[in-house]
Each structure stands twice: as structure tokens, then as C-alpha cells.
Simulated assay, not measured.
Amino acid sequence: MTITDLAARTRADAELMAAQAERLREIRDRIIGREGIPEWFDGEISAHIARCRTAAADLTTAARRLTAHVGSDS
């Protein structure tokens, strides 16, 4: 695997994490306030959403740096 390949895979992983954050947000919005949902659920799912968004941002930064590194070798 080349650095260019790694950058592309890292960028794809960032997109997956961002999509997962959005899916979790949609689930949260759909079920919060419904009967039977524990009061701790909103805090837990919100924390997972935040972690997914952080991971997406970190992976995007890593992909950008890998791409820049490849460009600096030219």
C-alpha cells in the first residue's frame, strides 16, 4: 500500500465516521422523549456522536497530512 492509498483509505474512514455520527443523531432525534427510553440514553448517545465527529475530523486531518507528504516528495 502506498502513502497515496493510505491517504485515500483514511479519507474514506473519515467519511464513514461522519456518516455514523449522522445516523446516531437521527436515531437519537427519533427516540428521545419516547416512553421507556432511559434518562441516561441521551447523554450516552450524544457522547458517541461527539466521539465519531472527533474521529472523523482527526482522520480528515491525517489524510490531508498524508496527501501533503506525498506532494512534498515530488
Score class of each variant (00 low, 15 high):
residue 2 T to M: 09
residue 2 T to C: 11
residue 3 I to N: 06
residue 3 I to H: 03
residue 3 I to G: 04
residue 4 T to N: 10
residue 4 T to H: 09
residue 5 D to G: 13
residue 7 A to V: 00
residue 8 A to N: 06
residue 8 A to Y: 04
residue 8 A to D: 10
residue 9 R to M: 11
residue 9 R to I: 07
residue 9 R to L: 11
residue 9 R to C: 08
residue 10 T to V: 08
residue 10 T to R: 01
residue 10 T to Q: 03
residue 11 R to T: 04
residue 11 R to P: 02
residue 11 R to G: 06
residue 12 A to W: 08
residue 13 D to H: 07
residue 14 A to V: 00
residue 14 A to C: 02
residue 14 A to S: 05
residue 15 E to L: 08
residue 16 L to C: 12
residue 16 L to V: 11
residue 16 L to M: 11
residue 17 M to K: 06
residue 17 M to W: 05
residue 18 A to R: 02
residue 21 A to F: 00
residue 23 R to I: 07
residue 24 L to P: 01
residue 25 R to H: 12
residue 26 E to A: 11
residue 26 E to F: 11
residue 27 I to L: 10
residue 28 R to I: 03
residue 29 D to T: 05
residue 29 D to N: 12
residue 30 R to G: 12
residue 31 I to H: 11
residue 31 I to V: 15
residue 31 I to Q: 09
residue 32 I to D: 11
residue 32 I to F: 06
residue 32 I to W: 06
residue 32 I to R: 12
residue 32 I to K: 12
residue 33 G to T: 01
residue 33 G to H: 02
residue 33 G to F: 02
residue 37 I to L: 07
residue 37 I to E: 06
residue 37 I to P: 00
residue 37 I to K: 02
residue 39 E to V: 07
residue 39 E to G: 10
residue 40 W to D: 15
residue 41 F to E: 04
residue 41 F to T: 02
residue 42 D to M: 02
residue 43 G to E: 06
residue 44 E to V: 05
residue 45 I to K: 00
residue 46 S to H: 00
residue 47 A to Y: 04
residue 47 A to W: 02
residue 48 H to L: 13
residue 48 H to I: 06
residue 49 I to N: 01
residue 51 R to P: 04
residue 53 R to V: 03
residue 53 R to K: 08
residue 54 T to L: 14
residue 54 T to Y: 09
residue 55 A to N: 11
residue 55 A to D: 13
residue 56 A to R: 00
residue 57 A to N: 14
residue 58 D to S: 13
residue 58 D to F: 06
residue 59 L to S: 02
residue 59 L to R: 01
residue 59 L to T: 01
residue 59 L to E: 04
residue 59 L to A: 03
residue 60 T to P: 10
residue 62 A to H: 14
residue 62 A to E: 14
residue 62 A to T: 15
residue 63 A to R: 00
residue 63 A to Y: 00
residue 63 A to E: 01
residue 64 R to C: 09
residue 65 R to A: 12
residue 66 L to K: 03
residue 66 L to D: 05
residue 68 A to T: 13
residue 68 A to I: 09
residue 69 H to N: 13
residue 69 H to I: 11
residue 69 H to T: 15
residue 70 V to C: 07
residue 71 G to C: 12
residue 71 G to A: 14
residue 71 G to Q: 14
residue 71 G to N: 15
residue 71 G to E: 15
residue 71 G to F: 05
residue 72 S to I: 08
residue 72 S to D: 14
residue 73 D to G: 12
residue 73 D to A: 14
residue 74 S to W: 08
